[in-house]
């Protein structure tokens, strides 16, 4: 299970939207293999009868009332930290490349 290939790492990098260099992919392929080998031992004790725990403190039904809050931002505040904005909207590059 701990066999990780460079192709897999490249695929993961694409899923995670990180433009890793070839060198990084090679390096991570080795490291990830080692790390996965170490962490795989969880399966030794994770038997079917053990329920998973996703929250350390079990709470439920935490809701808020349907009332507008005091933390509504102005459009100026909303875009203040943006790398690029056009008035009150965020600007992003074209979504599709030319070939599409």
């Amino acid at each position: 299970m701990s066999e990780i290939t460079a192709e897999q790492v490249a695929h993961l990098a694409n899923l995670a939207r990180i433009a890793l260099t070839e060198e990084e992919i090679a390096h991570l392929t080795t490291e990830l293999g080692q790390i996965m080998q170490a962490v795989e031992k969880v399966s030794e004790v994770a038997t079917p009868d053990v329920p998973p725990t996703s929250h350390p403190i079990p709470l439920q039904n935490v809701f808020r009332a349907d009332v507008v809050g005091a933390d509504v931002l102005t459009a100026e505040q909303a875009v203040a930290g943006a790398p690029e904005a056009d008035g009150s909207r965020f600007v992003v590059s074209a979504i599709l490349g030319e070939e599409q």
Binding site: M1, I4, Q8, V9, L12, A13, L15, A16, I18, L28, L32, I35, M36, V39, E40, V42, S43, V45, A46, T47, V50, P51, P52, T53, S54, P56
Partner: peptide, 24 residues
């Protein structure tokens, strides 16, 4: 990358799911 791998299709149960059991 490690976390993306642990959650990806086909590996979830073996990795993330098992880790949540260890948590129990």
């Amino acid at each position: 990358i490690l976390g993306t791998y642990a959650l990806s299709a086909g590996y979830y149960d073996a990795y993330y799911g098992s880790a949540q059991k260890v948590r129990t």
